[in-house]
């Protein structure tokens, strides 16, 4: 099977979830009451809004990830052809990783990796 496998599996996954949901709806009991529909908070009533501003650390790591992940994406083609190119590729990647590492070190030193 070729690239259409992706579509097939996509559809299969959707069908699986939708079907099971349908089945569940069919056979599950339904006894609704307002209490049940409250958000669960270990038996307490929720106070205040949930969707609030979040700790900035999460964003920080997201941004760091974004940058490093992109760099990883650049490593992929390099890794594939490394055997064919040899030494020059080695030198280039050492420079690349040196700068990347410097970036990591910088983030480290600036406390971006600290979770308080």
């Amino acid at each position: 099977m070729g690239s259409e496998a992706i579509i097939v599996f996509l559809i299969a996954g959707i069908v699986l979830v939708a079907g099971a949901n349908f089945l569940s709806n069919l056979i599950s009991p339904k006894s609704d009451n307002p209490q049940k529909r409250e958000p669960y908070e270990s038996g307490m009533v929720t106070k205040g809004p949930t969707w609030v501003q979040f700790k900035v650390g999460y964003y920080l790591f997201a941004i760091l990830f974004l940058i490093f992940d992109v760099e990883v994406a650049f490593l992929v083609p390099w890794a594939v052809v490394f055997k064919d190119i040899g030494f020059v590729a080695l030198i280039e990647i050492v420079i690349f990783l040196f700068i990347l590492g410097l970036g990591l070190l910088y983030a480290w030193k600036k406390g971006a990796l600290k979770w308080e």
């Binding site: 929720t46 949930t50 969707w51 999460y58 790591f61 490093f68």
Partner: peptide, 23 residues
């Protein structure tokens, strides 16, 4: 989307953890 504090915290942690280790 659950609009539940536990769920949100859990999800955020999951996010930061998954993306970190994905590298």
């Amino acid at each position: 989307s659950s609009n539940n504090k536990f769920a949100l915290i859990g999800a955020m942690r999951s996010g930061v953890q998954t993306i970190s280790y994905e590298l």
